[in-house]
Design a protein around this nucleic acid. Structure first.
Lengths: 253, 253
DNA sequence: AACGATGTTCTCTATTCGTGAACAAAACAG
DNA sequence: CTGTTTTGTTCACGAATAGAGAACATCGTT
């Protein structure tokens, strides 16, 4: 694909470097990570700064992400109606299960939690919203992947060299693919210790009026609290996604 | 200033157009607003899309802001320690005044509310966080402006053709400049109906160890509730900013 | 005071950005 | 259903500039 504006791409990548870095970065450091000359990086930074996407610390001379990104980020949320739509459902799910409930959507080749409702438990598991993670790593994400065409599933599973998070993470592509089949058959996913040790997730899909999957809902909590109540939580989760799907116009066949 | 990468600037401006537009926009519309050819806009969009900054609705073919902006936006917040720092202070202020409390910072030539704590009142005034507004428009913003060099104040007040929000908004530059002097003399601002009719704000500055202003705190609410208690609220606000400044190492002279 | 690191500026050419027009593909109207 | 309009997409080319690389400036450190 040569239909790409190289400097714009560089600007985007520069910004994304900050996602996995300390809050401030210098020109030299950025030029190494981007493999660009210091001069080029400096021009990028001043352009981005003049538009409010980057800020320079006057004392340290180092650079940080600017407030315009905060404006744009909140706009993404307000644009995304499913977030508002899901709020009352997640609330209810939390009040009935006493565990964290999240809404997970797919964005190109990643999964993201776009809404969450924390449990009121003093000891509670929390997730990081709005950060991408692989479509095979959590139960909510795997539900999304399960309802995608097989070619896409293979593309995802081949691409990454399967990140391993815990001793119980997946080790083979075949293992995941079997699980994806199971998810479609049962209509839900329940799994422990894949992404975080001692944590169990129960997830199910939401469909729209065209029958396509739009998001997934997951209840997540410490395994020793969730496992004893797993049937009850599963029923609540399934009831929730059915209600949500119905409201989106989905008719069960 | 010709030290600017034009395509990067165009990309940034394209993204910002979405801030004041419906959630989806088409190529033609964007090309008009940017005054660029359709082809150029299309290249911009595909580049931004490949980096996750833009998403295309497959049905309508129109474009929206992408999730990467959400990631970056939340990163801005976690980077910004003053937001976390201010949380307990705002909480306390709300519990004592029963009105909305906000933290306001300056970003280049604008003001932004970067943290807020809603009042528990059933009828409550709310503000939009993370959106820019002029440094002369709200009490919290004017406090920030009041402690800036006079040249900068003039620059700000000359630049805009003073936006008018309510019948009681400022109409002349002189009027604002007088108010800025008063703010410095008194160390706080209290004003009604400038930005929103029937709303009163009480704001005061936070200083760091070098004596520079870093942010301002404001209590905002319906005038008929705030005005009768204004002395009490003012004292609470002043106590809060003094405590915050002290913790940042500021020593009162 | 000399050094080493940083951020910043400069010059120049290969690169590419943006234009404008042609194309495809929908949405719409008659 | 068919012609028409409007949309998004592709293309070729010349003018504009992005990026390299070195020199410069400005720190903090030794």
């Amino acid at each position: 694909m040569d239909q790409v504006l190289s400097s714009v791409r560089n600007g985007c990548r520069l910004l994304k470097i900050f996602l996995d870095s300390p809050k401030e970065l210098g020109v030299t450091e950025l030029s190494k990570k981007l493999q660009l000359s210091k001069g080029a990086v400096h021009k990028l930074l001043s352009t981005l700064e003049s538009e409010g996407f980057i800020r320079q610390n006057e004392k340290t001379k180092q650079y940080t992400l600017g407030y315009t990104l905060l404006e744009l980020g909140t706009k993404v949320l307000t644009n995304h109606d499913i977030v508002d739509f899901s709020k009352p459902f997640l609330d209810q799910l939390v009040s009935r299960t006493n565990e964290l409930a999240v809404l997970c959507v797919q964005d190109s080749k990643d999964a993201i939690y776009v809404a969450k409702e924390d449990s009121l438990h003093p000891v509670r598991f929390t997730v990081e919203s709005f950060r991408r993670f692989p479509l095979y790593s959590t139960s909510a994400a795997r539900v999304l992947l399960a309802y995608q065409p097989e070619e896409f599933q293979d593309e995802i599973l081949q691409e990454h060299p399967l990140k391993s998070y815990t001793p119980h993470s997946y080790t083979s592509v075949e293992q995941i693919k079997e699980d994806l089949v199971t998810i479609r058959e049962r209509g839900y996913e329940i799994s422990s210790n894949r992404r975080n040790t001692g944590v169990t997730g129960i997830a199910a899909p939401i469909f729209d009026s065209t029958g396509h999957i739009t998001a997934s809902v997951s209840v997540i909590g410490p395994s020793d609290r969730v496992m004893p109540k797993k049937d009850e939580i599963l029923q609540e989760t399934l009831a929730t996604v059915r209600a949500m799907s119905a409201q989106l116009g989905y008719r069960m066949s």
